[in-house]
């Protein structure tokens, strides 16, 4: 089977300073996949690159073997909760209905069917009773569940979620996890950025350990060795961060054209 996500030699930077170095890995379909790493290790950046929200310096990504634009309708992205202003004048239903938008449907009407899908999504995250509540009047965990409901309403095959368990209490975390497992059992692929090591091993089938470089990517039991964890959490490689600074400061290209054969 083609991998759900296939990342080739991805290097990505902010203001010319690389924060991801040569990431090269594949995520299988139909699995619960965790991207794990310390703060600032580039997890969000990796998702952004997968979703085409930033342009990588080198490398490319294939989703179900295709370029993103061809399969965009099959992919759903749940950004971190801080990416929106929760005081925006919108209620829960407005946000979930956004899951039914697409570039072509921006001008048409929202159909009865779309509404039904949104309602179903809300009930799957146990938020139906809040459908008409203003989004600022939700707890952090509830806001997170609204985002997940919107994502469910997209009816995608691949889900990318950035820290969906942050600020969520234990009971809701279990509920969400059950939901995700159920999605997996229906053949969906779910990729989750997570930074709690304690739970990562239990939750995920496949884990990618990240810390500016890819430390390991594979079945949970292969990756969760103390050596590899030590390597991922044992701090940045100083040489790597120093060269990153040099690249930014001296304005050198990260890749050059016309290389000598090895």
């Amino acid at each position: 089977m083609t991998p759900a996500i296939d990342i080739h030699n991805l290097t990505a930077s902010y203001e010319r300073k690389p924060v991801l170095w040569e990431i090269d890995c594949q995520f299988p379909q139909g699995k619960l996949i965790g991207i794990v790493g310390p703060n600032g290790s580039g997890k969000t950046t990796l998702l952004k690159n997968i979703m085409g929200l930033m342009k990588p310096d080198s490398g490319y990504i294939r989703i179900f073997g295709e370029k993103l634009d061809k399969v965009r309708h099959r992919v759903s992205y749940v950004p971190q909760r801080e990416t929106v202003d929760w005081d925006f004048p919108a209620d829960v239903m407005d946000v979930v209905l956004m899951g039914r938008y697409n570039p072509k449907k921006l001008f048409g009407r929202i159909s009865r069917e779309d509404k039904d899908i949104a309602i179903e999504a809300l009930s799957r995250v146990n938020m139906l009773e809040f459908a008409n509540r203003h989004i600022s009047q939700l707890s952090g965990g509830q806001q997170q569940r609204v985002f997940i409901a919107r994502s469910l309403a997209q009816k995608a095959d691949l889900y990318l979620m950035d820290e969906p368990f942050v600020g969520v209490d234990a009971a809701s975390e279990d509920a969400i996890l059950n939901l995700l497992t159920e999605m997996k059992n229906n053949g969906k692929t779910v990729v989750i950025v997570h930074h709690d090591l304690q739970t990562a091993y239990e939750y995920f089938d496949h884990i990618a350990l990240l810390n500016t470089r890819l430390v390991a990517s594979g079945a949970a039991e292969e990756v969760f060795t103390s050596d590899l964890l030590q390597e991922a959490y044992g701090g940045r490689l100083t040489v790597l961060s120093r060269i990153g600074e040099l690249i930014a400061k001296k304005d050198f290209p990260i890749r050059e054209k016309g290389q000598e054969e090895n």
Binding site: M51, G52, L53, D69, R72, V75, Y77, P79, T83, V84, D85, F88, A90, D94, V95, M98, Y101, N102, P103, L106, F107, R150, Q154
Partner: peptide, 22 residues
């Protein structure tokens, strides 16, 4: 009127909007 939904989604959540190709 015509751009209501586009203006709404890009103002509320630009990141999400561009993730669905807007």
């Amino acid at each position: 009127l015509a751009g209501y939904r586009g203006l709404f989604i890009t103002s509320f959540h630009p990141e999400y909007a561009s993730s669905i190709g807007i």
